[in-house]
Design a protein around this nucleic acid. Structure first.
Lengths: 157, 157
DNA sequence: GGTTATCCGGACTGGGGTAGTCCTGATTGA
DNA sequence: TCAATCAGGACTACCCCAGTCCGGATAACC
């Protein structure tokens, strides 16, 4: 199974939460709203700020806010900010360390097309594509929406 | 960084090696040819046999052989055989365990489009695409091939 | 039928990486 | 000046993977 760090999952949750509210939001506030432990939220936000996805404001009444809309944030950017460059193996992510069986390995560099394919796939999906009506305080204006929610529910379980 | 288990990388090397030789091959033989430790090769081969990518033959003069040609093996199959189902997060891989912040998490099931995109990207790339002329005993029939090798070399480093 | 070569399945362990916490300092507004 | 908040780093505990090892089963050869 391809594994994504849990922090990336948290990052998506946090970013969606940020987009849902006006103005600045503090990490304790986001933690309370999402159920993610506060120190972890702070860690994620700091990482996202370093990746230029959010801006921070220090001091009293400070907090974080989104730099771009969700639809302008491909999931690849989030993964890159939290987990580093997108690559499947250590062999091909630009590391300079030598592979132990370098002289015999017939696969050197061959993962590149795979990495490219994944990167382009992830670049085409934005957070807006992943976003849906927030589950808490859900409004159901129509039976269609209710049906949609059932589908989403079962897909998630 | 998306991480692929090292075993998957080994699996690709082993499968390419299997395709390069006629008849049965033993795990010690493959280990010697690839530089991968013998117990690890055996482990990979057992996993691949369970995934129906290779067939095994017990007893003296036994060994392993490919079930299909490289061009008929998408990399997605290899990953699925070695690492399990292709999914980015534990949330969406069919596990029955509950997410700790289930009621608040707005992302339940939202990774599905991402997983689908990655899966389809990986299904389009076969081992034949990743294979190239084996580096040991390399033949260079034309300057074009020599130039190609330089490109592959630099891409791998 | 015995011997040899090989695969099979599981258990075990050490190391690396991640998640999560904590602390100290810097910045800003009241 | 004080309180609220972010910044940056260090630290620890835990989990998972990589790699090894062992006893057993199977098949070919002599």
């Amino acid at each position: 199974m391809l594994r994504l760090s849990k922090l990336t999952d948290y990052a998506v949750v946090v970013l969606v939460r940020l987009s849902g509210m006006e103005g600045m939001q503090t990490s304790p506030g986001i933690a309370a709203a999402t159920g993610i432990p506060e120190p972890t939220v702070a860690k994620v936000l700091k990482t996202l700020a370093a990746g230029d996805l959010v801006s921070s404001q220090r001091g009293a009444r400070g907090g974080y806010r989104l730099n771009r809309e969700l639809s302008a944030i491909p999931i690849a950017d989030v993964i890159a900010a939290v987990d580093g460059p997108i690559a499947l193996t250590a062999c091909v992510d630009g590391s300079t360390s030598e592979c132990e069986s370098r002289g015999l390995c017939p696969m050197r560099g061959r993962w590149d097309p795979v990495n490219d394919a994944i990167h382009s796939a992830l670049s085409r999906i934005t957070l807006a594509d992943m976003q849906a009506a927030p589950l808490p305080a859900l409004r159901m204006p129509s039976p269609v929406m209710a049906a949609a929610r059932v589908v989403l529910q079962s897909a998630a379980e």
